[in-house]
Amino acid sequence: MHVVYPVVVSALLFSIGVYGVLARRNAILVLMSVELMLNAVNLNLVAFDVWLRDRLHGGQVLTLFVIVIAAAEVGLGLAIVLAVFRTRRTVDVDRLRALAEVVRAPDPGRPDGEGAS
């Protein structure tokens, strides 16, 4: 097995994940994209583990750990998304603009109460 095949697939998956994270509006879709990126990393880890024939199986064990952490992350992430949804009634990340300055030109397209808090 040429290492270049899994590695290229992994790179493509990662880039697709990047696109998803940057372009998707729904927070749950963003989480899915993050999962794609994590999986790209996992594929890399496994491929290099096989290639390097690590006697300690570091790559595969780390893959397992990443999967576990990903599960925890999805759980927490969804909890956060739900909390945001409860308070803001939306999960669109580009409408969650509390990071911006409070004083701002009024944006008619924006529901009231957003970003003003």
């Binding site: 990047v18 696109y19 994270v21 940057l22 372009a23 998707r24 509006r25 879709l29 669109d92 580009d94």
Partner: peptide
């Protein structure tokens, strides 16, 4: 509305 306006930059 699943894609934000950031789409082209993201691509």
């Amino acid at each position: 509305g699943l894609d934000s306006g950031n789409r082209w930059a993201a691509a």
